[in-house]
C-alpha cells in the first residue's frame, strides 16, 4: 500500500469540516472562522472562496449526486452555494442559535438548538419539525429509506422525510454525541456521553448497549459492508463486528493510538479505515486482516477531520491550525 502527499491547502482558521463533492472533483473545506474554500481535487487549486457564515461555519453538506453545497453556521442560517461557480444561491434562516448539524438526503436537515428544519435545495422550508426537549446533537439520514434520525439528550427521533411525521422515538437517558446508520440501514448507532455506544435495529425492536469506553464517544463509522463499526472514545479505535446478531458477546478489535482518537473514516467502496489521534498520528487499518495496520502518517498539527474521496483514491485531512492535506492512497 502506498500513501503519498498529493497537495496541501491552508484555511484562515481551524478546519472544522471537510466534504468531497459527489463527483470527486472538489473538496470543500470550512474554517471555523467562517470562510469555505473549494479546492480542485486534481491539484489543490483554490477554485472558489465562499464567505460562509459570519462568526463561524460549523458544517458542510453536498447535495447527493449534485454540485450544490449547503453550509450551516453560527448565524442561525443555512446557506446554499453552487459548487461549480461559487455563487451564493440561497439562505434559509432556521433559528437564533447555531446551526451545528447538517445532513443532505431526501431533504436538507438542519439542526439549530432544539429546532429541526427540513429544507428544499433552494432553501425553502419544507417542514419545521416539533422542537426537541433538548438541543439536537446529531443527524443521520437512513440509507435506502427516506427517514431521518435526529438525536438529543434523552433519545433519538426517527422522522419521515416526506411528511415530517415522527415514526418512532428511541429513548436514551443520556447525552448523544454522534449517530450513524449501517449502509443497508439495518443498524442505527449512537455514540454517547455516558460513555458508551448504543445500537438499535429499528425494524426488529432490538437494542444493544456497548460500554467500557474511556471517554464520550463522538466518532462513529461503518464500513461499506455494514459489518465493521468503528468507534472512538479513547486511545483506541474500537471496532465491533455487527454481522448477524451484532456485537454483543463478541470482543471488539482494538486499534491503538497513543492519544485520544479524534476522527474516523471508512472508505466508501473498499475496506480501509482511517483513524486520527490528537497527537497528529493518522493510521490506516484493514479490519479483515490478521495484521490490520496498513500505514501510519504523522502530522505536525492536531487533526480535526478525515474524509475519503468518493473513489477512495484520496484521503483529506484537516488540522487545528487550518491546514488541509490530501494524500493519495494506492491500494497494493
Amino acid at each position: 500500500m502506498n500513501l503519498t502527499k498529493h497537495w496541501a491547502g491552508q484555511l484562515d482558521d481551524y478546519a472544522i469540516d471537510l466534504a468531497w463533492s459527489p463527483d470527486g472533483a472538489l473538496l470543500a473545506a470550512a474554517s471555523a472562522a467562517g470562510p469555505v474554500a473549494l479546492f480542485a481535487a486534481a491539484d489543490g487549486a483554490r477554485r472558489h472562496e465562499l464567505p460562509g457564515h459570519e462568526n463561524g461555519t460549523n458544517a458542510l453538506a453536498w447535495a447527493p449526486g449534485g454540485r450544490a453545497l449547503a453550509s450551516g453556521g453560527q448565524d442561525g442560517a443555512v446557506r446554499f452555494w453552487d459548487g461549480a461557480t461559487g455563487q451564493h444561491t440561497a439562505t434559509a434562516a432556521v433559528g437564533s442559535g447555531w446551526v451545528e448539524h447538517l445532513a443532505w438526503g431526501p431533504a436538507v436537515a438542519a439542526a439549530c438548538g432544539r429546532r429541526l428544519s427540513l429544507l428544499g435545495p433552494d432553501g425553502t422550508l419544507r417542514q419545521a419539525l416539533p422542537e426537541a426537549p433538548k438541543t439536537f446533537a446529531a443527524l443521520a439520514w437512513r440509507p435506502n429509506a427516506p427517514q431521518l434520525a435526529a438525536a438529543f439528550f434523552g433519545g433519538v427521533r426517527l422522522i419521515d422525510a416526506g411528511t415530517g411525521a415522527l415514526r418512532k422515538e428511541f429513548p436514551y437517558n443520556n447525552g448523544i454525541q454522534a449517530l450513524v446508520w449501517s449502509p443497508e440501514g439495518r443498524w442505527l448507532v449512537s455514540g454517547n456521553q455516558d460513555p458508551s455506544v448504543h445500537l438499535w435495529i429499528p425494524d426488529e425492536e432490538l437494542e444493544l448497549q456497548m460500554s467500557g469506553y474511556e471517554t464520550k464517544v463522538k466518532h462513529l463509522a461503518f464500513d461499506r459492508t455494514g459489518r465493521w463499526l468503528a468507534t472512538g472514545g479513547g486511545r483506541d479505535a474500537c471496532v465491533w463486528d455487527c454481522s448477524g446478531p451484532g456485537p454483543e458477546g463478541r470482543a471488539p478489535a482494538m486499534f491503538p493510538h497513543d492519544a485520544p482518537v479524534c476522527a474516523l473514516a471508512f472508505q466508501h467502496r473498499h475496506g480501509l479505515l482511517a483513524t486520527a489521534a490528537s497527537d497528529g498520528t493518522v493510521m490506516l487499518w484493514s479490519p479483515d486482516r490478521r495484521q490490520p495496520l496498513r500505514a501510519t502518517v504523522k502530522m505536525t498539527q492536531p487533526p480535526t477531520k478525515l474524509a475519503w474521496s468518493p473513489d477512495d483514491g484520496q484521503l483529506a485531512l484537516g488540522s487545528a491550525q487550518g491546514a488541509v492535506y490530501v494524500l493519495r492512497c494506492e491500494n497494493g
Binding site: 484562515d12 482558521d13 481551524y14 472544522i16 471555523a32 472562522a33 463561524g56 460549523n58 447555531w98 451545528e100 433538548k134 438541543t135 446533537a137 439528550f153 447525552g175 456521553q193 480535526t304 487545528a320 491550525q321 487550518g322
Partner: peptide
Amino acid sequence: RGDLIRILGRLLKRK
C-alpha cells in the same frame, strides 16, 4: 450543563 459542553467544545475549535 449541556449547553456549556456544546459551547465550550465549539470554542476549542479555533486556531
